[in-house]
Design a protein around this nucleic acid. Structure first.
Ligand SMILES: [Zn+2]
Ligand SMILES: [Zn+2]
Ligand SMILES: [Zn+2]
Ligand SMILES: [Zn+2]
Lengths: 142, 142
DNA sequence: CACCAATTGAGACTTTATCTCAGGAGTGGT
DNA sequence: ACCACTCCTGAGATAAAGTCTCAATTGGTG
């Protein structure tokens, strides 16, 4: 669940002014269902320049309002709710994405970092599969 | 450790002919130390066309000879040894990459897939940190 | 309201990757 | 060794994704 009332406090996002174009971008992002690419956002906001869209997305990501999802060789996709550490379960067929709230792998990650003598920065885990809808739909047909 | 004698059997890579350009690409990839991007490979093989380099990389990846490493928003990097499932520990400072042979997270992954009712396809885990060399070097200086 | 620095955005440019198709080269048969 | 047949190659066009520039605009402040 995303706290839309946090929007106001987030509008300035490392800038010093709450401007019109940025409001439009932030409001669109907050209202967006599911994930989107930067270019998709640009296309749906022709009244806002591409540079501003990209700048705002970068800020939103730094502020933890959105998180970036890298799937295969495709363009990054963005998703509301990057505030706390989490992972994603992605449907390879329909593209649905579930947030996995509990990390579940931090012990293993710590162990590995220690084994290699690394000073840990972070980690990224993505799980791929087919969601129940996609599996069900296929099973029913043919 | 990569079995270079497997090279011969790999040269055809889903094609029906073992051609000169492909030999050059495969041999260069096998001899490469560390990871590389497609463009780096192109640059170091001006005698081979870009299309062929990309085609061969795609085949090598499908065959599991190399694995693709996505770091942040940068271009994919390739690395020998994708035959069996594994993960990577990446140094965010110098770019060094360690293979993590043991998966270590498959139980968690299974649990999550079951929880969401997904039919599992696979998963990707990358761990970021600074390697002992980078940490040591920094600690010693300034 | 005026001022001024912060911000915007059109468009050029860069990087990375895919596509096209005429010409070139590997293979198997003879 | 040669031919023929087909697959493969590569120069260059095109596409996709994102960054950069800088003149014009605008929000915030007093
Ligand atoms: Zn699905
Ligand atoms: Zn985690
Ligand atoms: Zn390092
Ligand atoms: Zn694994």
């Amino acid at each position: 669940m995303v706290d839309r009332s946090a929007l106001a406090s987030v509008l300035q996002l490392g800038f010093s002014r709450a401007t019109g174009p940025r409001k439009i971008v932030v409001e669109t992002v907050v209202a967006w269902e599911g994930h989107f690419s930067a270019e998709e956002l640009c296309r749906s906001l022709p009244q806002v320049g591409r540079a501003t869209v990209y700048r705002t997305l970068a800020s939103l990501q730094e502020e933890g309002v959105i998180c970036r999802l890298m799937i295969d060789g495709r363009a990054p996709r963005y998703l509301l709710g990057g505030t706390q550490h989490h992972h994603h379960m992605v449907c390879t067929q329909c593209g649905a994405v579930q947030d996995i709230a509990d990390c579940g792998v931090d012990d293993f990650v710590d162990t590995v970092a220690e084994r290699f003598g690394y000073e840990l920065d972070g980690h990224r885990l993505e799980i791929y599969g087919r969601c129940s809808t996609c599996v069900g739909g296929e099973g029913a047909s043919s």
